[in-house]
Design a protein around this nucleic acid. Structure first.
Lengths: 105, 105
DNA sequence: TTGACAGGCAACCAAAAGGTTGCATATTGT
DNA sequence: ACAATATGCAACCTTTTGGTTGCCTGTCAA
């Protein structure tokens, strides 16, 4: 799961996921078009990291490689990790409020 | 929002959030006890990053500093970003399946 | 078959991240 | 007042990260 968090930490990679969400199954060159300020090799590296984190799956098709979004790890993060913090949301805020108040004595 | 993702990318920082979720309002030294393999200064830096990302709020109380969890940014990530990918979950998987199948011709 | 196109690999580089050590500052209890 | 406690600050170091360039390999189409 650490790999997923690390992969999501980079803006360019989140952008790539966004673009795949908008149009799934794109090739490396197609994805490069969306990040003009970056070389093909840089994008390729980002895709490798996303693939490593299992956030995308790529299949080779002739000379090109199609990239598909895999939303499952994101779902798992939402379930296993963010869910915990959602549940404690009101508690945490009320704790903080209480602490701030008692600090004013 | 980038700061939140970056802050969440580190295992130690996620652990700190976990520990604050278990017991809110801890001091720096208390939190250090949970990460024995790290110096106080390292923990302090992590807390600063979490604070910068607005994931925790700290209030000084005499000579000690109490750290409180702020789950709001995590909630926002879940809402604004993960939600998008949840919605596209089945689509993405079926796209992938279709692509894999047509690759088998 | 040969040139153009899609992508992979490796070396290299600069900047950022994570961590440490040493010292300074502020607060508290005796 | 003073020693102990709680934290802050700054310099420094090492590893990781994000990026580049140059070249190589595989595939398609004329």
């Amino acid at each position: 799961m650490d790999a997923v968090f690390k992969a999501l930490a980079d803006e360019s990679r989140r952008l790539l996921l966004d673009r795949l969400r908008a149009a799934n199954g794109q090739t490396l060159n197609q994805l490069c078009a969306g990040l003009p300020a970056m070389s093909r090799q840089a994008v390729s590296k980002h895709l490798a990291i996303l693939e490593e984190a299992n956030l995308i799956a790529a299949i080779k098709r002739g000379r090109e490689k199609l990239h598909y979004l895999n939303p499952v790890p994101i779902h798992e993060i939402a379930e296993r990790w963010i869910g915990k913090f959602e549940r404690t949301r009101l508690d945490a805020l009320s704790d903080l409020k209480k602490a701030l108040e008692s600090g004013d004595e």
